[in-house]
């Protein structure tokens, strides 16, 4: 396939669950793409649908009553509706995933090395010793001290940071072109988080992998991602290059989210600019803009669901830029 096509191209992806006789829309018409060796951040609060989006791409949602529509082209191959059998050959080899809690993400009764070997041996015809050699090599590359010994240890014997490194080693073991990282540092201490983010940032150079980084932390996005997509209540609020989004957010939600983070430097505000209220549950989602009930700039035209419109290098699901009243740039947007 030609190299100018994105690695992953998601168009109008929707996921709904059936509950008490009604279809509950979790994710609605989400579109985005991930280029080669790019890190795309998906940000959102709990219930925004960011994890569900990732799980749908991985084909890991198979609960009865789930409807997935739209399209997700991975290297030209359609993932929506793909059989579980075909997914199996992609998962772990072409697309792999790491999760939030590295404690519970490993099976407790096998050694770390055994679990990494397992993934390698499932996808490749390679001897036990060959797989182990690669496991040890990977663990070492991920900055795990004494990788031979660590490979023979059980998950509970390792610290959170080491477990997450081992998890990343396992995810990379078959050289996937896409790594989906679902809140990979949320359970970790801040000094260890910095190490893991550093590791993720360098993957594209060392392994040529693209990363889809799911997080609730705008700080993590700023430190790690090339482009960002902000989800609110299952819909795309904004997407674009991280630099542009942080300098001048196009969607009031993005702006408010950034403002509500207490600053670490500069003057301390008396009160934090906060967003009143809470995101609506999926069944009470407004038919217009989902953020309207909490938005400072809400007006009549917000009662109609806004479509994504181009705003500089960004795409924004808000009428403000089109109406000629874009949000002001952030003073602290770039430093």
């Amino acid at each position: 396939m030609p190299d100018d096509l994105p690695l992953l191209e998601v168009r109008d992806l929707s996921v709904s669950f059936r509950s008490r006789g009604r279809d509950v829309p979790i994710v609605e018409n989400v579109s985005f793409s991930v280029d080669r060796q790019e890190i795309l951040g998906i940000v959102g609060e709990s219930g925004s649908g960011k994890s569900v989006t990732a799980m749908a791409i991985m084909g890991l949602i198979d609960a009865p009553g789930v409807k997935i529509t739209g399209s997700a082209l991975f290297r030209g191959q359609e993932l929506v509706g793909l059989s579980q059998r075909s997914f199996r050959h992609l998962r772990g080899r072409e697309i792999s995933m790491i999760f939030q809690d590295p404690m519970t993400a490993f099976t407790p009764v096998y050694t770390i090395g055994w679990q990494i070997d397992e993934q390698i041996r499932v996808h490749e015809a390679i001897s036990r010793t060959g797989a182990r050699a690669r496991t040890v090599q990977l663990l070492g590359d991920m900055g795990v001290p004494d990788p031979e010994r660590t490979a023979n240890r059980y998950p509970h014997q390792l610290s959170g940071g080491l477990r997450q490194r081992a998890m990343i080693a396992m995810a990379l073991s078959c050289n996937p072109s896409l790594l989906i990282a679902d809140e990979p540092t949320t359970a970790l201490d801040v000094t260890v988080q910095a190490q893991i983010l550093d590791l993720l940032r360098n993957l594209r150079h060392n392994y040529g992998s693209s990363v889809l980084l799911i997080t609730h932390d705008m700080g993590v996005v700023a430190e790690t991602c090339d482009r960002v997509m902000v989800l609110y209540s299952g819909r795309v609020a904004e997407r674009g290059p991280a630099e542009a989004v942080f300098r001048q957010p196009g969607h009031p939600y993005t702006g408010a989210l950034l403002d509500s983070i207490p600053p670490l430097t500069g003057p301390r505000p008396e009160r934090l600019p906060s967003i009143a209220g809470a995101p609506p549950p999926p069944l009470e989602r407004p038919s217009g803009c989902a953020f309207a009930p909490r938005c400072h700039y809400v007006h009549e035209s917000c009662m109609i669901l806004p479509s994504l419109i181009a705003y500089g290098t960004q795409d924004v699901a808000c009428v403000l830029p089109a109406e000629g009243h874009p949000l002001p740039p952030r003073a602290a947007g770039a430093a």
Binding site: L60, R91, G92, S96, T104, A105, V109, Q119, H123
Partner: peptide, 24 residues
Amino acid sequence: DFMRTARAKGLSPARVLLVHGLRT
């Protein structure tokens, strides 16, 4: 979580169920 990881690794459903689920 570890069962989800096992599926995400690309293991067959039988292997996920027997080697990871049943064993635990």
